[in-house]
């Protein structure tokens, strides 16, 4: 081999290195560009959500009667469960929403709040939280999941391709899938009772039916104010943390808790909404198509330079 080849190889190495670095640099620059770029984010998402439909869950009131599960099953024409809703033994095993149920109630040992005398278990209702800045909506490749102007995150199965990226994206692990359906499987989750057959009915079925009024339906900012005033009136009862106010950019299902949320099945999550980062990178890289065009021009120029002195027929 010797020096000739070495020199050639040096040039190979250098130029290949350039390719790698330039491409990598372009993608690393994405976030940097994004930081300078103007995303959605001038108005925080929570401020745009003041009027959104929301539900306040007072976990110190819930008695685990499962009426909400039953009302949801009926309102959404879901299949009847194997174990009837009157059975409260199922609460002993933690459950998740799945393709045939949009909401479940789980039981956790311990009083719901320090001043509670009535029960020694705490019950937490699990369902789609209709985030203010939903990860699933940002992730959906065709826009089958949309956040309506009045708040609920709704699903359109007609255009869904079934890629299940929304399920990967959801930090609360809510969307469920009909894996057993071969031809028309759907993503299943709480719809805040926005279907057509719920028109004219004032509330989501679960909130309408809750016998102890642990679920209060209203506008998001009004519910936040209500939660604050309840906590102010009963400081011994509630934690100083309204769950869902800020988590992953804020959610529309807000939980008043009388004990640390992580003890009752509520995940500890960052305050930044994940779509802010991904959309910043995405739009930062592709803003006006500047970066791809720049890279294209650079490489094309390089190609012209290297090949203009070669005899034709070499590169074919």
């Amino acid at each position: 081999m010797g020096r000739t080849c070495f020199r050639e190889m040096n040039m190979d190495r250098r130029e290949l290195f350039t390719l790698a670095l330039s491409a990598a640099g372009a993608t690393v620059a994405g976030p940097a560009l994004a930081a300078a770029a103007d995303g959605h984010g001038a108005t925080p998402a929570t401020e745009r959500a003041t009027d959104h439909a929301a539900v306040l869950v007072d976990t110190t009131l819930c008695i685990g009667c499962r009426s909400c599960e039953e009302a949801c099953q009926r309102a959404n024409h879901l299949p009847a469960p194997e174990v009837p809703f009157s059975d409260r033994w199922v609460l002993n095993t933690p459950r998740r929403p799945n393709a045939t149920r949009f909401t479940v109630v789980n039981a956790y040992e311990g009083r719901p709040s320090p001043d509670s005398r009535d029960r020694d278990k705490t019950y937490t209702k699990v369902q789609c939280l209709h985030c203010v800045d939903p990860s699933c909506v940002s992730a959906c490749i065709v826009g089958a999941l949309k956040k309506r102007d009045d708040g609920p995150v709704v699903y359109n199965p007609t255009i869904c391709i079934g890629c299940r990226y929304c399920m990967v994206a959801c930090p609360f692990e809510i969307p469920a899938y009909e894996y057993s359906e071969p031809l028309l499987p759907r993503v299943r989750k709480c719809t805040l009772c926005t279907g057509e057959d719920r028109l004219g009915k004032p509330k989501p079925a679960c909130a309408a039916t809750c016998p102890v009024e642990a679920l209060v339906f209203g506008k998001r900012d009004e519910l936040i104010a209500l939660a604050r005033s309840r906590a102010a009136k009963n400081p011994a009862r509630y934690e100083d943390h309204l769950y869902g106010e800020h988590e992953v950019g804020g959610t529309s299902w807000l939980y008043l808790v009388g004990r640390p949320p992580t003890e009752i099945g509520l995940l500890e999550l960052q305050e930044a909404a994940p779509p802010r980062l991904t959309e910043a990178i995405q739009h930062g890289i592709f803003k006006y198509g500047a970066l791809p065009v720049a890279v294209y021009s650079g490489l094309a120029g390089l190609m012209w330079l290297t090949n203009r002195n070669r005899p034709q027929g070499g590169a074919k």
């Binding site: 959906c140 490749i141 089958a144 990226y165 499987p185 995405q282 739009h283």
Partner: peptide, 26 residues
Amino acid sequence: FDLGRYFNIWRPLFNWQGNSVLFEVG
């Protein structure tokens, strides 16, 4: 095989959701 509704595989051509990274990949 993996897509639940594989017959909709053409939809991203017409239903654009530009915020989605998966859209860009597709």
